[in-house]
Design a protein around this nucleic acid. Structure first.
Lengths: 232, 232
DNA sequence: CGCAATATTGATTCCGTTCAAGGGTGGTGG
DNA sequence: CCACCACCCTTGAACGGAATCAATATTGCG
């Protein structure tokens, strides 16, 4: 359970905001952090709850979602190794505005808020780096507002499939390294489960993708790219 | 044109990230900033362009939007006195990802990027305050993704009307302090202009709002609130 | 093995878009 | 000053994309 992984070999240390951290700061974080394992389905934190630290993902995949008034989830992001979560609530001293739930077994470290605040105040590069991270998320969110408002479900599904591939990659056989239920896919795209199923089998019969159970392989990226109308 | 207003009496100094600024820093900003007037319709910066500083609004109202592949605008935010814009591009060293356009004559100051970076690195409270601002926007954006994916156009229009009132207030007679074309309203809600027109006249005939040209007055907030299904 | 969760397919309904046509308004220049 | 034009607003009719409802099929876990 508490076999705390070393931050030195943590994916976060290389690709994330923590790349700006000094060895001394690192030692301090090592002392302050705690780590836990989560299984698929486990909730790390829930919308509305108070959290007093940020979560740093060592391994695994999480979905980050908001729950609508009728209980329907809207997935607004994923988080994987090297990502940090919960900084929004910590920085703003507000309850969490999303729920984070494991969709693959995960090992996650918890760093108390005080450590983060210290870092921001004393390490300008860390602050800057964290800001850039948030800005990226903001930009993505704004893009998605536009897409969900202007594109058809078919176009958005194409876009989401491409995003999943870029974000999580593929295995030896070319299948996406992330498996989602049809309902989860629908909760990203912002549509009904049945619509996702229908469109997936359309894509399948058009030879654009290969589907085997929950495993999906993109067979014609050019087609999907053109369909999704996103040029970046 | 360049009758630079004093930051001391600028609305930004009180309510915004600049409230954390020291007198010395303030003097420095005064020296470095430049200001200009914009008329309704003027574009402050355009999506894709490079900007090397942030814009600080002294007065006026802007719409911030993204343009879809078919040229349709999606408004993702408004900016008014005291707000700052463009920090995303500055922080990330990337081209602007939105267009900012005046919908009311505006007086806007421009602060070079270098000043902002200095402040972030030397004034931890400024960094923190800026981060909180971005986090707020991120939260709002994520909420809106959920809404646009799950709510009907009618519900979203109700929500937008309430947001406009909270954000811009009303005049003596209770009319919204912001006037938008039907098309602009549609570009916030994420729908067709005709739909907005139809729904507005529905609300009107239901006695929920009073409409006179571009001026709108909310007559039954309780109804709109309940309809919008947003409880915050 | 059996149950619960997930996936699939069909039929139907409806919300919202699109297309089309007409009316109003405000600004500008002769 | 007012005529004209561009822009905005409005309403109607028809279509269509996607949601919903319903009935099975399949999967995978305990």
């Amino acid at each position: 359970m508490t076999n705390n992984p070393n931050c030195k070999q943590c994916p976060s240390a290389i690709n994330s905001v923590f790349s700006t951290i000094t060895p001394e700061e690192n030692t301090f974080i090592e002392l302050e952090k705690t780590c836990s394992n989560y299984k698929r389905g486990d909730v790390i934190y829930r919308e509305g709850s108070r959290i007093n630290g940020v979560f740093c993902i060592y391994s695994g995949i999480l979905k980050i979602y908001k729950t609508g008034s009728d209980g329907k989830e809207q997935i607004v992001a994923f988080a994987k190794e090297g990502n940090i979560m919960g900084y929004r609530s910590v920085l703003s001293h507000e309850p969490a505005c999303t729920t984070a739930q494991a969709i693959e077994d995960a090992l996650i470290c918890y760093i108390p808020a005080s450590v983060i605040f210290d870092l921001i105040k004393t390490n300008g590069n860390f602050a800057l780096s964290l800001m850039q991270l948030i800005c990226n998320e903001l930009n993505q969110a704004n893009s998605y507002i536009k897409d969900i408002a202007q594109k058809t479900v078919r176009e958005r599904l194409a876009e989401v499939l491409l995003m999943l591939e870029t974000n999580f990659g593929t295995n030896d056989e070319g299948f996406l390294n992330i498996t989602l239920t049809r309902e989860e896919l629908a909760n990203i795209v912002g549509t009904a489960t049945e619509s996702v199923i229908r469109l997936l089998s359309e894509f399948k019969s058009e030879g654009v993708i290969i589907v085997s159970r929950k495993f999906i392989k993109l067979n014609n990226r050019v087609f999907l790219k053109k369909l999704s109308k996103s040029f970046n």
